[in-house]
């Protein structure tokens, strides 16, 4: 159907519209997934630190008692 890579990229003269659509589509979906993975890691790290601190406090309280 396409006579080569250049022909494919030209998209029958509609390159800006087609690639502008697919480009933004791909970038935003990947960005959403990456940002969510980062937020997940941050939340897990923050909660893990807090839980560890609380548990250490408990152990200290018990030792001091």
């Amino acid at each position: 159907m396409w006579s080569g890579v250049g022909d494919f990229l030209a998209m029958g003269g509609y390159a800006p519209w087609v690639w502008g659509s697919y480009g933004v589509f791909a970038v935003l979906l990947i960005l959403e997934a990456v940002l969510l993975a980062r937020r997940r890691r941050q939340v897990r790290d923050r909660l893990t630190r807090r839980l560890r601190r609380e548990r250490a406090d408990q152990v200290r309280e018990v030792r001091e008692a």
């Binding site: 998209m11 003269g13 509609y14 519209w17 087609v18 659509s21 697919y22």
Partner: peptide, 17 residues
């Protein structure tokens, strides 16, 4: 999918639109 007979290749935006 072949080009559209009216819209050429611009209609391929439909596959995500």
């Amino acid at each position: 999918a072949p080009p559209d007979y009216q819209q050429g290749d611009s209609y391929r935006i439909m596959f995500i639109h």
